[in-house]
Design a protein around this nucleic acid. Sequence first.
DNA 1: GACGATCTTACCTTTAAAGATAACAAGCCT
DNA 2: AGGCTTGTTATCTTTAAAGGTAAGATCGTC
Lengths: 96, 96
Amino acid sequence: MVDDSEKMLLAYAGKRIRETRAAQGLSLEQLARLTGISGPALSLIETGKRDPRLTTLKRIADALRVAPATLIADGPVTIEPSLTATSGGYDLGEYQ
Amino acid sequence: MVDDSEKMLLAYAGKRIRETRAAQGLSLEQLARLTGISGPALSLIETGKRDPRLTTLKRIADALRVAPATLIADGPVTIEPSLTATSGGYDLGEYQ
DNA sequence: GACGATCTTACCTTTAAAGATAACAAGCCT
DNA sequence: AGGCTTGTTATCTTTAAAGGTAAGATCGTC
């Protein structure tokens, strides 16, 4: 991670996560329990100091009941649900 | 990474990356040079065998000239550009 | 001012992402 | 068949994410 735009994305995603969490009245510790991610790790992510893995982002998005994409898009996101999508989205029968 | 839905997200994102790359007539090696990500690493990501970091996803998205969110959303994505957004989006003056 | 809740930071360990390189597997083409 | 391109897989090293724990910092509130 060297690029400025990468730091900005991390800061932005962290801000979105914190906003979404706050909007639901969740404490950082509560989100930690919901996601299985430690409090310190969540704090680092929300403050843009850590570069989370994609599945880490997904665990947070799931706990907050939003699509992962909404946490990194720079504006309101409209996701057109695919017709074949199951509850979790991402309809690939057995990962293919 | 234990969850099935996480594997599905990785497989799905990889598929989207590969589709986008193919649509632009880029070889894996060309994308590797554009992103600075090694060929083997890209191959693992595109086949859903690796859990990329958020900034890794961004480097790929940038090279493919799409928003990072489009690579993980399970359907067509509409991102409403924020009025204050600069070219790169993510308008946070000095990462705040 | 002491207390509690909430978040941050530091330190340590374990695990895995990422780069490099090399070997291997298909396809394709003449 | 031989070479060429393209992608996959394996091994190794370095770096950093993630968990745990504990120590600070910043608040409100009593």
